[in-house]
Design a protein around this nucleic acid. Sequence first.
DNA 1: GTATGATTCAAATGATCGTTTCAATTTTAT
DNA 2: ATAAAATTGAAACGATCATTTGAATCATAC
Lengths: 218, 218
Amino acid sequence: MATDTKHRILDAAEQLFADYGFPATSMRDITNEADVNLAAVNYHFGSKEALLIAVVERTAAPINRDRLERLDELERKAGGSAVSVEALVRAFLAPMFERWSLGKSEPKILKLVGRIHAEVDQDLRAKFIRQFDAVFARYSTAFQRSLPGVPAGDVHWRMLFLVGSMAHTMTWAASIIGTDPRARREPGEILEALVQFAADGMSAPAPKPVAMPAGGAR
Amino acid sequence: MATDTKHRILDAAEQLFADYGFPATSMRDITNEADVNLAAVNYHFGSKEALLIAVVERTAAPINRDRLERLDELERKAGGSAVSVEALVRAFLAPMFERWSLGKSEPKILKLVGRIHAEVDQDLRAKFIRQFDAVFARYSTAFQRSLPGVPAGDVHWRMLFLVGSMAHTMTWAASIIGTDPRARREPGEILEALVQFAADGMSAPAPKPVAMPAGGAR
DNA sequence: GTATGATTCAAATGATCGTTTCAATTTTAT
DNA sequence: ATAAAATTGAAACGATCATTTGAATCATAC
């Protein structure tokens, strides 16, 4: 069966990219883990980079589709008025956490996406950034509508903060859970904690203008 | 001069690790950039990994020292009572942003630290994680004191969110600034925006318990 | 059953990786 | 100045990298 090899490669690559990152994972690591021939990756995908793109496509595409659908639904329900900030934050975050909960045990998708947000270099990132950009743009305008007091540029930055919290959580949640027993949480609880944190952060009053010579906030 | 070579290697490595990450940067990249012999890195530092540790040590140590000093100062001023959350957040974040503002133009330190938080694999990370852990622990107890209504475990998670926002901002601030003219901000303004966001997020009410079968928050 | 295309396989390609070697050179101490 | 130590230099080491090759094997269709 042909699709079997492709699937096994995608699964192995997803796992390894998530655990060790893209540059640190070799073709041989992938093909050994997938138990396929070394040449299979280049045969089926063309190159290592193309494999990464395929992995991201497979994992991120349904998440982003889900995000957009939830936003559609929220805006439909709200009629013409603004959606609550918390609902927007939850609609943006839940599609990822849900895949975590539904998955077996390891949050590989989350780690992978976390890494992609954090690790991939500029030029490679540009190849699949557009997929994220569409989501980003839609949510950006929605947030702007829901936060009329906050300048558009600041909303932009706050969304960067939001994505950062999410990505970092994806990457390190497993080790955090393993460290402090008091911090043990179910995925749903972590989502709720992050929603609470990010919703309040997004809703903060507009920052006061900074009047400083040129050196931070000493 | 001996120290000159070491310095040039450290500078080049800092720059390249920040731009391309640790695994993607080769010894030859570093020695070419530093204009020193290829063997110089192994002679002066022992290995590539040891060089990374030295780079982190040089850039992160003063930042973490600064963080602890500011916390000391805040707790001293507060006497026995709790420090304000916003002050804690600012004390934690400002030492990094300040180095950005004071630096020439490129936020390489920030990108580097951002990457270290996000990219380095488990075992290598453990080698210098203790340095961060000390800071993390001190701020964790301080935050717990200032947030009496929030369970300790949740404070732990919120600090993870905070670090994530910071790390992600460090990594992507440059590209964000380059993208949307409305999002153009001075480093001091970005710090203030992040302080506002994170302080309100940290101060959010304690999350309601989640009662769900085992599948996210649909 | 035989031809055709898709897939797998073992092996090799050239490039690049981190590290080592050892002689040449420079610095330091006497 | 001379001996000793520290540093630099050019070259090579073996290992591993992503990718390619061409024959072997498989599936499918006629």
